[in-house]
Amino acid sequence: MNIQKIRDILDAEVICGERYMDRNVKMACGSDLMSHVLAHIKEGDVLLLTGLTTPQVIYTSDAVDIKVISFVRGKQPEQATIDLADERKMVLLCTTLPMFESCGRLYKEGLIGCSEYDG
C-alpha cells in the first residue's frame, strides 16, 4: 500500500517527507513501546503507528529501518522530532484518529500486520 493511500484512509496530515508519498509499505505495526518495536518489527517496509512523538521514536525507527511513521490521536511531534525524521528521509503523518480506529481502517483496506507477514 502506498503512503498516499494511507494518508487518505487515515485522513492524516503530512508533516514531512511529502516527496516520498509514493513509497510502499508491506505491513504495519501499532505500538507505544519502543522496545517492542526494536524486538518485533520484521525486516521489510513497515508503517509504524504510535502515540509517542519524542525524538527517540525516530532513533528507534532508524535502528530497524522504518521509513514511515503515523502519529495517532492527533499528537503533534516537536520540532526536534521532525528535523531528525527529515534528515533520515522519513515520512511523518499525523492523524486525529485513535490507534484502534487507525488500525481498523487500514486493516479493512487490506494492510496486514507484522505477525501475518512472511517474507
Binding site: C29, M99, F100, C103, G104
Partner: peptide, 16 residues
C-alpha cells in the same frame, strides 16, 4: 499471539 495491529483490525471489523 497476534500483534496489536491485527487484533485491532479484526475487532474493528466485528464491532464497528
Amino acid at each position: 499471539e497476534l500483534q496489536a495491529f491485527e487484533v485491532a483490525g479484526r475487532l474493528y471489523q466485528l464491532v464497528i
